[in-house]
Nucleic acid binder design. Structure first.
Lengths: 341, 341
DNA sequence: TTTGGCACTCGACGTCTCCGAGTGCTACTA
DNA sequence: TAGTAGCACTCGGAGACGTCGAGTGCCAAA
């Protein structure tokens, strides 16, 4: 177990390393943080902390650098004393307001905003939960074999997709189909009505049963398969940082960010027990991210889960990141909610 | 004017520099390309070419590097002899097929595909021309003051947007509105019917005139304002290249790629007289791109203009780029066309 | 006009040295 | 016994220096 003073030393080293980016020596700690103690004393403590796995030496005659274990300590200490009143920050930029109607554009903007504010990579995503309420579902005829399926969910999320029917289908049939679906599904959760809907349709519209089947399939895909949209923005902000010297790794990271499926995997791999979680360096399952840290925050409203996050160097400004995400998230979930109920 | 031999030398230098990335000396040219002539001869030619502004010396005792002027010569020579039969290349990956119904996802994939094949940045965009034919336009009620406007264009492009009405509006009115709009607009070009539609609606639905007005506004925005969607993909491919050592510039470039409006400006700034155009280095109006080259190719079908492009270092493989873009474009325009008429 | 020869230039690279920050250890002190 | 001061030691970084070699420009000869 760590003594009180050892803890102070670790936190000082982490703090100093985060701000300066250079290995921290005993003298620095003694002068800047534990002014009562001499460098020699600190040296002894640091030597022990090295053995315990909290600090690392890049080489013999250099200062110490925190390990993931030390960062963890630091982050936990932030999380503990964070129960102070969070001032409601960030009057949302109005550009964002103007995109209220287009969830995807808004997410992309938010990710870029986050990145800009923190000089790291911003993440913004939304996941449609199974319980999301359907507002309406429509089929718009395109030609005799194709129609556009359009789902509008409570809260303003809109999906559309072109589907192909196994047989020709008349516009009137489509209208019939959508009005029946709406009758049962509107205002309810899709996963709730899905089963009964299928039976009901099979019973009443049996001349169209095969077409109904493919329509339901398509809706299923829309509402569950592709149910998470996630955007990463502002990747260029980390380009200058001394922490990302290794171009090869940087490249791998950038490649990962472009793959929405990888991002999804990333977000899902983070334990989302509480609203906020921090993954530090090697704690990360994905190799490309092992010299990064991730702060993720998620909130839920109206059957959707909103995820905000930041990816930065291990020595990122955790405190700023946490405050930002915790300050922003309620704004967004609340705002989306109150908009059009 | 250049002599025959000077031309040969310039082209050799460009070619060699493109393949090796290192300044080219007179001996290299003499040995690899103009085997008949000695290094000294080449040296004299090169010295003159330097004065004429085709070649540059990074420093006194280094080989020559081509200037934009030389690249221009090189590219033009490719474009001239390119009139050979282009083998139909690239059986489109099937993933692309599966995204036929979602134009935006497809564009994003294409941009990444292009990037992967050429190790540069891929661009893919689509612009809705004024002459695009409307397939249908619908209003779906969301609540008493809001509706979703949905426009389906010939060729499968779908846009939607939430609009707010100045007054309450009943679902029946919306239906009335959309059926009237469709009556006049379906199968026609928006810019053709826009004016008469406005008058017609004002005449027949005057109790809703203010609402009609905002609806038409919204459609206008959908079909003209935001009419170009463009994606840049695979930016990580240029990270390793020796040509992009300067992190600052790279950062500016990446930032530009994330701004769709900048990309749009970029594409529009390129003269699109012929189907294919190449912009080299300083020829570029945007400062961020002055050490890049851009190859853009565009084709038109069904009222939409499809744009494919590549952004790479000045010493990019122009020949490969040109062949790729010219080979791919017809596939895509044709494919999109034949799909659902 | 072309070519071979030659002196010259200049960056890349390796070696060497010096400097200083930081360490570990030991002996001294309160 | 914990804390402190002193000291020898280590090691990377920066700068000085020398060498190497690719490439040039120019001149004189073919």
């Amino acid at each position: 177990m760590l003594t009180e003073r050892q803890l102070e030393v670790v936190l000082s080293v982490v703090y100093d390393y985060i701000t300066t980016g250079e290995p921290v020596g005993s003298r620095t700690v003694s002068r800047r943080y534990l002014t009562g103690k001499s460098a020699a004393t600190i040296r002894n403590e640091m030597s022990e902390l090295s053995e315990m796995g909290y600090l690392n030496q890049p080489h013999t005659s250099a200062g110490r650098v925190p390990t993931a274990k030390a960062y963890r300590l630091y982050v936990d200490s932030i999380l503990q004393r964070r129960r102070e009143p969070l001032q409601a920050l960030d009057p949302l930029p109005k550009e964002l307001k103007s995109r209220r109607d287009d969830a995807e554009a808004a997410l992309s903007m938010i990710s870029q905003l986050l990145a800009r504010l923190t000089h790291s990579i911003g993440l913004a995503g939304v996941e449609v939960m199974e319980e999301v309420l359907v507002q309406r579902i429509d089929f718009l005829p395109v030609d005799s074999r194709h129609a556009l399926v359009l789902t509008v969910l409570k809260g303003g999320l809109v999906h559309h997709r072109m589907i192909e029917f196994p047989l020709e289908i008349r516009p009137a049939d489509l209208e019939e189909l959508s009005s029946r679906i709406n009758l049962l599904a509107s205002g309810r959760a899709w996963n709730e009505v899905r089963q009964s809907l299928s039976e009901y349709l099979a019973g009443t519209l049996d001349h169209l049963s095969r077409s109904c089947f493919s329509a339901l399939e398509a809706i299923d895909e829309l509402l569950s398969g592709r149910s998470m949209r996630i955007f990463a923005g502002g990747a260029h902000h980390i380009l200058g940082l001394p922490d990302f010297q290794d171009i090869g790794k940087l490249q791998a990271l950038m490649a990962l960010l472009e793959e929405e499926s990888s991002l999804e995997k990333l977000v899902r791999s983070v334990p989302q027990s509480e609203g906020l979680s921090v993954v530090i360096g090697e704690e990360n399952p994905l190799e490309e991210l092992q010299n990064c840290s991730i702060v993720l925050s998620s909130g839920q409203s109206a059957g959707r889960r909103l995820v905000l996050g930041l990816i930065g160097p291990q020595r990122m400004d955790y405190e700023g990141a946490i405050v930002l995400l915790e300050g922003l998230l309620p704004h967004l979930t609340a705002g989306d909610d109150g908009d059009r109920q």
